[in-house]
Design a binder for these strands. Structure first.
Lengths: 110, 110
DNA sequence: TCAAATTGGGCATTTTAAGACTCATTAGAC
DNA sequence: GTCTAATGAGTCTTAAAATGCCCAATTTGA
């Protein structure tokens, strides 16, 4: 055992759904695994891992492939994309930049 | 330069938004980076990469952290999660299992 | 039915992320 | 203003992902 990492059910399901969305998108566009993987600049095996919902693939690659087959996680298109992001930015500036240093028993742990 | 991988704007924006959502979720729950990273079983540096929208983190870890702070990509909760997945499964069975071997000039390439 | 092409999976190698440690910076409670 | 702790960032080591190659299995068009 090297690094036995565990994933929650929600994580596994999310990965599975995303993989299936990507595979469906690829088939709808009639792209072979070889074609899509080449366009994405990855190997055919990595694409298969993604479509199978494997947890180990790096997220940038997965999102890139998703984008290539038209799967969008947020309402991000090239124009309005920054909007959603800006709203988040605003929210982040409203939130404290750090968690309060002095613990004061929030009893949030259980 | 080893493997200069490039990511589309949509991919970068998606990563950025997801990272900000996670950071916002962490701050709202008043978790320090150390606390959240420990709960996720990852290092503080990896968490920072995620919140900064870096592309290199493995997707399972990112989704796990997102789950921990309440960020859901799909409407996946522990009960109904399989439903969405089942619908996709159905869609996938309807689609051809493979792309047609004989290319017939779909002129989709440009 | 047949055959071409896609898909699936193992294996060795290369590339890279993740971890652990340290130190500098900065926010924010007092 | 001060002091504490959270954050940001760099380096080195280690573990694992990604690749490329191979060949087997399966689909599907003809």
């Amino acid at each position: 055992m090297k690094r036995p990492r565990s994933y929650s059910r929600v994580t596994k399901q999310t990965l599975s759904i995303l993989g299936k969305l990507i595979k469906a998108g690829r088939l709808e566009r009639e792209l072979t695994a070889a074609e899509l993987s080449e366009r994405a600049g990855i190997s055919r095996k990595t694409l298969r891992n993604i479509e199978n919902g494997e947890a180990g693939t790096e997220i940038g690659i997965v999102f890139e492939v998703a984008t290539l087959v038209g799967v969008r996680l947020f309402d991000v298109d090239d124009r309005a994309g920054a909007m959603h992001s800006a709203h988040l930015e605003e929210k982040l500036t409203l939130l404290p930049k750090r968690v309060r240093p002095s613990r004061q028993e929030v009893d949030d742990d259980f």
